[in-house]
């Protein structure tokens, strides 16, 4: 249970940690766009370089970043294989019976892997590793606040998200406790067929739901006791102000996008269609 690292925030003192979370959300969107702009060897090389620079800027140990890539390893391997075997091109490298491998396929495989890896590293470095979940929901609330004019309850959604995030570690701790208690009564979660295993979860799920509802009720009472009544007229304890320096990263990402397009046009080396 403890291995479920949720909100993999990595505390460190880095320029990325200090950057305004709203800017970081915008940067993430732009960075994702950038990664889809790449078409050829040079632009993918630049993209990979930018991901490495991001890791250095965020001062997150490379080991932790790589661990974040582990869950997508299967997807990476799968896309690579698909691209190697199914891309048809002009330069045939290898043929055996029905298997044909083209140079284009190999390039496409590498490019797709770089793209997926940089997407994960980029969003990770800009958001999950360097921004606390709470700061992130605050930022989303700010960025979506124009929707309030259309009567979308933005604040309420953000509050729900904050509470949900806060409850995740609590619930996982509780699950562990209940599991231990039921194990002490001889419950067995790891043997038997599918139906038996599903049945074995009942003694965990019921107490978990009961306590989650109780907690939710208590929280609602506590919030009402402090006169919480939704977003209207509510101010923040920490008001964030965007500084001029916060725009520098935005400029840098725009510059990255522009150079990627430029490199695509140059068309040196292999280029994807």
């Amino acid at each position: 249970m403890k291995s479920i690292a949720f909100g993999q925030f990595y505390p460190a003192n880095s320029p990325l940690h200090k950057l305004d979370p709203r800017i970081k959300v915008i940067l993430t969107v732009l960075y994702i766009v950038c990664s889809f702009l790449c078409k050829n060897l040079l632009s993918f090389a630049l993209l990979a370089l930018s991901a490495i620079l991001l890791i250095l800027c965020g001062r997150v140990p490379i080991r932790i970043v790589l661990r974040g890539l582990r869950p997508v390893l299967i997807i990476l391997a799968f896309t690579a294989l698909l691209n190697i075997f199914w891309t048809k091109g002009e330069q045939l490298l290898f043929a055996w019976k029905f298997i044909e491998i083209y140079a284009e396929g190999l390039y496409a495989a590498v490019f797709m892997m770089v793209r997926i890896a940089t997407l994960i590293i980029g969003t990770g470095m800009l958001l999950t590793y360097t921004t606390t979940p709470i700061a992130l929901t605050d930022a989303l609330e700010d960025l979506l606040s124009p929707l309030k004019k259309l009567k979308v309850p933005v604040h309420e959604f953000a509050m729900m998200m904050t509470i949900a995030l806060r409850f995740i570690p609590l619930l996982s701790e509780e699950t562990e406790k209940i599991m231990t208690a039921q194990k002490a009564r001889g419950a067995d979660f790891s043997s038997g067929g599918l139906i038996q295993r599903a049945k074995a979860l009942i003694p965990i799920l019921i107490p978990l739901f009961v306590s989650a509802f109780n907690r939710a009720g208590d929280l609602a009472t506590a919030m009402e006791c402090r006169c919480y009544h939704g977003g209207e007229g509510r101010t923040r304890m920490h008001v964030r102000h965007v500084r001029l320096v916060d725009f520098i990263p935005l400029l840098l990402v725009l510059l990255l996008g522009a150079s990627l397009i430029f490199l695509n046009v140059l068309g040196i080396g292999f280029s994807m269609k």
Binding site: I178, A181, Q182, A184, P207, V210
Partner: peptide, 25 residues
């Protein structure tokens, strides 16, 4: 072993069934 705050382990429909959970296992 009776854990800390063991009342959070109760889950059955009746107290009888809950106490019977261990012996049943």
């Amino acid at each position: 072993l009776v854990m800390q705050y063991p009342e959070y382990q109760l889950f059955e429909e009746t107290v009888y069934k809950d106490i019977a959970f261990g012996p049943k296992n």
